[in-house]
């Protein structure tokens, strides 16, 4: 394939989709460099990809080396762990979780989640929480049922009011239904309000 700009062979291919329209560019290395499309090597791309996440929030153009704070439990740093091959304290697992997870994954045939025995105390604590959660869920279900019942009653009253041409009452009932109807839609958990930038 020839370069879009000159007679050289195209070695850099870029495909972008803008507003649903696919734009393809096939360029030789020189023209690509001219357009600001670097003929990046796979290695470079990977490095870029790996550090991209860490670079969010960093000042642009700054040479970046991912830094993780020392463990709040024992003051051990990730570099010290690398040297010793051993962590400093149990809290290190939390402190270095992001950096540690890929290492753990490699050492344990891809596993990153414990399966098996759990200390009785922790199991009991978790069971306590589960019970709590179950109670909460039951309560929520009861509330929803209650509201649905209330809605049915209101709807019936509204229908009757409309039939009896009691428009003032009907308007009041409609407002009440709206109120109840909205409150039965549970707000999704974990979703935080966020304003657009």
């Amino acid at each position: 394939m020839k370069c879009d700009r000159c007679d050289n062979d195209a070695t850099v291919h870029e495909v972008t989709v803008r507003n649903g329209v696919k734009v393809e560019k096939h360029l030789c290395e020189a023209c690509a460099a001219g357009e600001g499309i670097a003929g990046a090597s796979l290695g470079e791309l990977l490095t870029k990809f790996m550090t991209q996440e860490a670079e969010v929030g960093a000042k642009p153009k700054q040479v970046h080396k991912p830094r993780v704070a020392a463990c709040p439990g024992c003051g051990f740093t990730f570099d010290q762990f690398r040297q010793a091959g051993l962590l400093g304290c149990p809290a290190c697992y939390k402190a270095f979780e992001t950096l540690l997870t890929p290492l753990i994954e490699r050492a344990h045939e891809g596993a990153t989640q414990h399966a098996g025995k759990v200390p009785k105390r922790i199991a009991a604590r978790a069971a306590g929480r589960e019970e709590e959660a179950a109670t909460e869920a039951a309560l929520a279900r009861a509330q929803i049922r209650e509201r649905q019942e209330r809605l049915k009653v209101l709807q019936r009253q509204l229908d009757e009011a409309v039939r009896g041409e009691q428009y003032e009452l009907a308007a009041r009932l409609r407002d009440q239904i709206r109120k109840v109807d909205i409150t039965i839609i549970p707000k999704p958990k974990g979703v935080q309000e966020r304003s657009e930038p």
Binding site: L86, P90, Y93, I104, A107, A111, H114, G116
Partner: peptide, 26 residues
């Protein structure tokens, strides 16, 4: 375990000095 509080995380299991033993520690 009835008398001593073990270091444990629901994600990584029993926490050991070397990450190659983490999990069951077994």
């Amino acid at each position: 375990e009835a008398g001593l509080d073990y270091a444990f995380s629901p994600k990584f299991g029993y926490l050991t000095a070397c990450p190659t033993n983490v999990g069951t520690g077994m």
